[in-house]
């Protein structure tokens, strides 16, 4: 949906045509849910939080300025909703030596993740992704699965584009280290 169309729909919703909001629910429910479910790792919680995110978006619709796409704005709300939920749960993630991540070269990571897929690697990567923190999970889901550009990710996470690039690089390296730890090479 184009930004202009979105603006028209938002205007109509604000004028009282509440049913028009179903366009957004229909269009973005899957993407919002798939990002949240990766963060909270539970279908029931993810559905409830997705619903909360849509309700928050509806109640704050008049504050949407249109300086980014509606989906970016909605993802920001959904991300914040999921993060608050995860913080309350206080999930303990495995500690990783930061120096290990620093020593990994970009080339090694690039070559590794461009390998042809095989079942074992996919399984290892799945386990590694589950060990990332909430922000990292949301970041890679939006970047790789939803193909969100870096500038939109910056708006979702409230960071600069440079910070998002750094975080993405760091997350790839972390995944690489987590897989190597599974291999027992380090």
């Amino acid at each position: 949906m184009e930004n202009k169309d979105e603006q028209i729909i938002i205007k109509r919703i604000l004028e009282g045509e509440t049913a028009m909001f179903s366009h957004f629910v229909e269009q973005y429910s899957h993407s919002v849910y798939s990002m949240i479910v990766r963060i909270v790792q539970s279908r029931e919680d993810a559905e409830e939080l997705s619903q909360d995110a849509f309700l928050k978006a509806f109640s704050k619709l008049e504050t949407f300025k249109g300086d980014c796409s509606f989906s970016t704005w909605l993802f920001r709300i959904a991300y914040n909703t999921a993060i608050s939920f995860v913080r309350k749960k206080k999930v303990i993630l495995p500690a990783i030596d930061e120096s290990l991540i620093e020593t990994v070269s970009d080339e090694a990571v690039g070559t590794f993740f461009d390998e042809d897929e095989n079942e074992r690697r996919l399984q290892q990567l799945e386990i590694a992704i589950a060990q990332l923190n909430a922000e990292e999970k949301a970041l890679i889901t939006l970047f790789y699965l939803e193909s969100k550009p870096v500038n939109e990710l910056a708006m979702v996470f409230g960071l600069t584009t440079e910070n998002v690039r750094v975080k993405l690089h760091r997350t790839r390296k972390k995944l690489f280290v987590l897989i190597k730890m599974q291999d027992g090479e380090r």
């Binding site: 899957h30 590794f112 993740f113 897929e117 992704i129 890679i140 889901t141 995944l175």
Partner: peptide, 19 residues
């Protein structure tokens, strides 16, 4: 970073039950 087909494939294949 734009390629990383292994990550993309894993994210696509790790299917949670749909909404």
């Amino acid at each position: 970073m734009e390629k990383d087909k292994l990550i993309k494939q894993t994210l696509k294949s790790t299917q949670w039950p749909p909404v």
